[in-house]
């Protein structure tokens, strides 16, 4: 079992909810693994399937769309 695998996950966060939630997680010092790379969008509906596929093609181990 390898423990060295560190997935890189692209996170698309809606400015009005998920991104704000991420901010609050910080204020509340809620801890989570440092593998997500946050990208702020104006609505999760802005994230096209093409963008998700693009991220996977470029080597992302996972994509989260949060809104």
């Amino acid at each position: 079992m390898s423990t060295s695998f560190e997935p890189v996950i692209i996170g698309f966060l809606c400015n009005w909810c998920a991104y704000a939630g991420g901010d609050l997680a910080g204020v509340g010092r809620l801890q989570y693994p440092p593998n997500m790379r946050p990208i702020r969008v104006m609505c999760s509906g802005m994230v096209s399937p093409e963008l998700v596929l693009h991220a996977l093609k470029q080597g992302a181990d996972g994509v989260m769309v949060m809104g």
Partner: peptide
């Protein structure tokens, strides 16, 4: 500025200022 148009358009014919597909892709890359 929600960008539903941007994600629906198959050819970058409509984009949202400050959050264009090239900008989002640049961040991903």
């Amino acid at each position: 500025g929600c960008g539903l148009c941007e994600s629906t358009c198959p050819k970058e014919g409509v984009l949202v200022h400050g959050f264009t597909l090239p900008q989002l892709k640049a961040q991903v890359d």
